[in-house]
Design a binder for these strands. Structure first.
Lengths: 185, 185
DNA sequence: AAGGCCATGTAACCAGTTACATGATTCA
DNA sequence: TGAATCATGTAACTGGTTACATGGCCTT
């Protein structure tokens, strides 16, 4: 459970509406925490009720009005408290690995296509991460003296990049293994 | 949702009781799918009701009786069907990354200890994986001509090893970054 | 006129977690 | 005697997913 905390972090980085948060969860924040708009609206309501955030109605001419949320002092201290708590080592859920072991009881070669699809998805994600890194951290437009927030965002992004590179290499290994089990008979 | 399928795979590899499954979910299978005994018993019951598995009462002298489950023909075909369905790219949930970005709004140095704890946990896990690899796949006791099931188990384990190595390197990067943001003033 | 984006929600459901419960045997 | 292991469960709760719903503006 950390959606509340992910939202607090995101709103501290930049206040915004539920809709905007939902979009961020498809981008930057979404690289390490996912959430749908339904879930976000529900949690925002609870957080507002608990006094962690407050809303400001923003009227817009061309677009529908929106509620812009910001983190309250109380929200900040809830976040600080959470940051000081140790977290349990994460539990893994790797569906593709289940399928790979399951392939022993079906046709290993039939899985190759699926694994290749995943390989493509990860290659895409890596490309997006690298583009983001160039834009925000290592390119000519990037700040020459990044602040703490930017340094931390960058190190998290480097983690995403490392993860995608590792995954690509592993999926190549998987594909080669599946081929070897195939019909070369 | 794949606990059912993970159970089917595990029971195809080796029939067993709920208790035994729970132990496997702390070991081999647990490297890529976690589940507690409570959840396992609940799901086993449903799977039995749906005819995917069947139970055989096994009386034991010294230990309590147990129900040994095996996969039925129907269970096998359910698994095969699932294997042929494409799966959505997994959604990430990386709590530590949320904390790292959150550290910008608190004390980055205070996070170092926590990150080091995680580093240790991952180093332990890597050691266990490597020991398992040596025992089952690359050591002198390992089969010289592994079958498809063993090849696939090995490639999944290699994925776990690659993941832990990547994570260790990244956590070192994180620790160095947190230090840099610290008091060297 | 149709489809996409902005913006916000409700309701039902399902999967997973946490707490509680029982009881026998084996080992230190 | 007390802790660990084997063995199986119930109940309450929480977090997350899926389906459904509304409505205006902008672009093609």
């Amino acid at each position: 459970m950390a959606l509340e905390h992910a939202i607090l972090v995101s709103l501290l980085e930049q206040p915004g509406s539920g809709y905007e948060l939902a979009r961020r969860f498809e981008r930057s924040i979404g690289y390490f925490w996912t959430a749908t708009h339904q879930q976000i609206y529900r949690v925002l309501k609870r957080m507002e009720g608990d006094g962690w955030i407050d809303a400001r109605e923003v009227a817009q001419q061309t677009r529908p009005d929106k509620k812009e949320y910001s983190v309250t002092a109380q929200g900040r201290s809830v976040l600080a408290e959470w940051l000081h708590e140790p977290i349990a080592p994460e539990s893994v859920r790797h569906e593709l690995a289940v399928k790979i072991r399951g392939a022993a009881f079906d046709d290993p070669v039939a899985l190759i296509r699926e694994v290749e699809r995943h390989r493509e998805a990860h290659a895409d994600r890596l490309a997006r991460y690298l583009a983001g890194e160039l834009r925000d951290f290592t390119g000519p437009e990037a700040p020459s003296a990044p602040d703490a927030g930017q340094e931390l965002q960058h190190v998290v992004l480097r983690g995403g990049i490392a993860y995608e590179r590792m995954t690509l290499a592993w999926l190549d290994d998987v594909i080669a293994t599946l081929h070897r089990l195939g019909p070369p008979a």
